[in-house]
């Protein structure tokens, strides 16, 4: 499960309300992604290209259960790396099929615009621009199964729990 893409860099303590602001409540799922980071980096959501990768510092996704991971995925991002991640946010990444990995110190290995390659099963991370490498926390077999299905809704549909 290898992800490769151009890096967008964010700092520490990026919370769910910045990822998924209140202005994105109560509107259609198609409209929501453009509000991502509208309070801390206005205009950014329009410059994301499909497959780009987000690299962040500590405590990414601190806060609410609102599924910011889904908005990042719908925005076209291919995955993300961070020094650490709120546990509930990490679950939302897996649950919505958005590849994410935690690796202490990873944010120091990347500058914005670098190209990252990482593998969620082995944990291997490489900065293809600088050559720097690191190892993150690999995901479990169960998490990989959910990611491969595309997320929990897709998994439950395959298993017959949801009406199609």
């Amino acid at each position: 499960m290898t992800i490769k893409g151009k890096i967008w860099k964010f700092g520490d303590d990026i919370n769910t309300d910045l990822i998924f602001p209140r202005t994105a409540f109560r509107i259609s799922p198609e409209e929501q992604p453009r509000y991502v980071f509208s309070d801390n980096r206005p205009g950014w959501s329009a410059s994301v290209a499909p497959g780009d990768v987000l690299v962040a510092g500590r405590n990414f996704g601190t806060g609410s259960s609102r599924p910011g991971a889904l908005l990042l995925k719908r925005l076209g991002l291919g995955g993300m790396l961070s020094d650490s991640m709120n546990g509930l946010f990490f679950r939302n990444c897996i649950g919505y099929g958005f590849p994410a990995m935690q690796c202490a110190g990873v944010s120091a290995l990347f500058e914005e615009g670098d190209v990252a390659e990482f593998d969620l099963i082995s944990g291997a991370i490489r900065n293809l621009t600088s050559g720097a490498t690191a190892f993150g926390n690999p995901i479990s077999r169960g998490m990989a199964e959910t990611l491969e299905a595309g997320g929990i809704f897709e998994l439950l549909t395959q298993k017959g729990y949801l009406e199609t």
Binding site: S65, R66, P67, A69, L70, G87, L88, R91, N92, G95, Y96, S140, G142, M143, G151, I152, F153, L155, L156, Y161, L162
Partner: peptide
């Protein structure tokens, strides 16, 4: 007691279980 997003909630509503990583 732990909070889940909607995806984990629909899983636990359907299955009655979920995974936990011991911290």
């Amino acid at each position: 007691a732990g909070g889940f997003g909607p995806a984990d909630m629909i899983y636990v509503l359907c299955v009655g279980q979920n995974w936990y990583q011991v911290a």
